Simulated assay, not measured.
Amino acid sequence: MTVPIGSLLLLLCLLQIKHMFADYFLQTPRMLSGRGEYWHLGRAEHAGVHAIGSIITFLLVGAPLVFTLILAVLEWGVHFNIDFWKARQCDQKQLDPYKAAFWRASGVDQALHQFTYIAMIWAWATFAL
């Protein structure tokens, strides 16, 4: 795997921008309410926004379409379940932004999403270049 560091960093930056918009600017009230139940349409839509953003991101760097679609489906499932874990933690422990445990759960949630991006970049460098 010999990928120019600039290409890896560009992809990481694009994924960070995508994540910022999907997690902080594009969430709707339906995506934010009732997240403690597993089969939650809002969480599915939210994970879908992330998947669509990743499709756009990987196509921008020239990744093959089939690879990109497989990666997006995998990301959808991982993102859906990471967010469910956080919602369950917050519901079960009655966490809100005024409790330190809420921020620990949020930190773990965000770290897991970042590890997902590292895995996606590894897959791109290994299988798509």
Rank of each mutant, 00 (worst) to 15 (best):
G6Q: 12
L9A: 10
F115D: 00
F58E: 04
D91L: 14
I118T: 01
L14M: 13
P64R: 07
Q110W: 08
L32I: 07
L8R: 11
A44G: 11
I118N: 01
Q16K: 11
T126C: 08
T57C: 14
G6I: 10
L69E: 09
L41Q: 11
G34M: 07
L95A: 08
E37M: 10
I70L: 15
G36S: 14
Q94Y: 05
L71Q: 11
F25W: 13
I17N: 10
Q94H: 13
G36Q: 15
L26R: 02
S7A: 14
A119R: 04
Q92K: 13
Q94M: 10
K99S: 12
T126Y: 12
I121Q: 07
D91G: 03
I56G: 03
F127A: 09
C13G: 14
T116A: 13
W124F: 11
F84C: 08
L26K: 01
G36I: 01
L10T: 12
I52G: 07
K93Y: 11
F102A: 02
Q94N: 14
W39L: 15
I82V: 14
L32M: 15
I118L: 15
I55K: 01
S54Y: 11
V108Y: 02
C90M: 10
W76R: 03
L9K: 00
P64T: 01
L32D: 10
L12I: 05
L65S: 08
Q92M: 10
F80M: 03
F115S: 06
Y117K: 03
L32N: 12
T116K: 12
L14E: 08
H19R: 00
Y117R: 08
L69I: 15
C90V: 08
S7E: 15
L9V: 10
V3Y: 12
Q114V: 12
V66M: 07
I5H: 06
D83T: 04
S33V: 08
L59A: 10
A100M: 12
H19N: 04
L32K: 15
D83E: 09
R35G: 15
E37V: 14
A123Q: 01
A105R: 00
Y117A: 05
T116M: 15
G34L: 05
A111H: 01
W124K: 00
I56H: 03
R43A: 11
F102C: 02
K86M: 01
W76K: 03
L11H: 06
W122K: 00
R30G: 03
A100Q: 13
A22E: 05
L71T: 12
T28R: 11
I56L: 15
A22R: 00
Q94F: 04
D96G: 09
A105C: 05
H40S: 05
L95C: 08
Q110T: 09
L26P: 02
A101F: 06
